[in-house]
Computed example of a mutant assay.
Amino acid sequence: MTGARVIRTALPAEAQDITALHARARATYYPDGVPDDGTDWLAGWRRAIERPDGHVLCAVEHGRIVGIASFRTAEGAPADTVYLAQFHVDPDRWRRGAGRALHSACVEEWLADGKRTAHLSVHVDNDRARAFYARLGWVPDPENPPAPGDHHLLLVYRVTGE
């Protein structure tokens, strides 16, 4: 299967497919359904794909997008720091290497761009994702512990290559 996988930059025309994958992945860690907070995810993905200061990579297998990663340098953050805003693998492709390959591509790009630290926020109830990130070297951010009642955990990754 790995020979049929390609990691590449997402195209604006793929925003609808990316939004659908995002919804499928998020639904797995909300037992009562994904909360409707009014976010227009399609518009958000279109902006992410088109923004000049950001990157959206996708893992494609046999012509189908099976993973997505969106990252950028956050406003006010040091120039060598990147924020991984979204990282999702289609649930029917879990544990088949797409996530690891996509993460490796992110790290390669971060290194090429001079990034040395990466941050992300993960839902505290998303045990599967937390274990995935831990296997890749992400750790809880000691400078930003979760506030009481916060549903997200901030993780940090030292970008040194894998």
Rank of each mutant, 00 (worst) to 15 (best):
A85M: 09
E162Y: 14
T39K: 06
Y133K: 10
P12L: 10
S70C: 13
S70I: 03
R96Y: 08
T81K: 00
R47Y: 08
W94I: 04
A59Q: 07
D40L: 07
P52G: 14
V56G: 14
C58Q: 07
A77D: 15
G44P: 08
A27W: 00
G44D: 14
T2L: 13
A118Y: 08
E109W: 09
H62C: 10
T2K: 09
H119M: 11
H103T: 03
H119F: 13
L102W: 05
C58A: 12
A85L: 07
G3T: 13
E143L: 04
H62N: 14
R116A: 14
D125C: 08
T19N: 10
A131Q: 15
R158H: 13
V159R: 02
R26A: 09
T2C: 04
P52V: 14
G99P: 00
V89F: 05
A118F: 13
P142H: 11
L111Q: 10
E109D: 09
G97C: 02
R8C: 02
A20D: 15
A129V: 10
A101W: 00
H123T: 02
E162R: 12
R47A: 14
G149S: 09
W45E: 07
G149A: 08
A105F: 03
V56E: 11
V89G: 02
H22S: 08
R8V: 08
E162Q: 12
R158T: 12
F132C: 03
R135G: 11
V156H: 06
A134V: 03
D150R: 03
A69W: 11
G137W: 11
R24F: 01
Y157R: 03
A4W: 05
R95N: 06
L155V: 04
T9N: 11
E108T: 11
R116I: 10
Y83E: 09
V107N: 10
R64G: 02
E61W: 07
W41R: 15
R24C: 08
Y30Q: 01
L111S: 05
R24D: 11
R26L: 04
A112S: 13
A101H: 03
L84G: 15
T160V: 10
R8P: 06
W41T: 07
A59H: 03
R93K: 04
R5Y: 06
H62R: 11
F71T: 12
E143V: 04
R5D: 04
H123G: 04
L11I: 10
A98G: 06
T9M: 05
T39D: 06
D141W: 09
G161M: 07
I65Q: 08
G38A: 03
L155N: 07
L136C: 03
E108Q: 08
H55P: 01
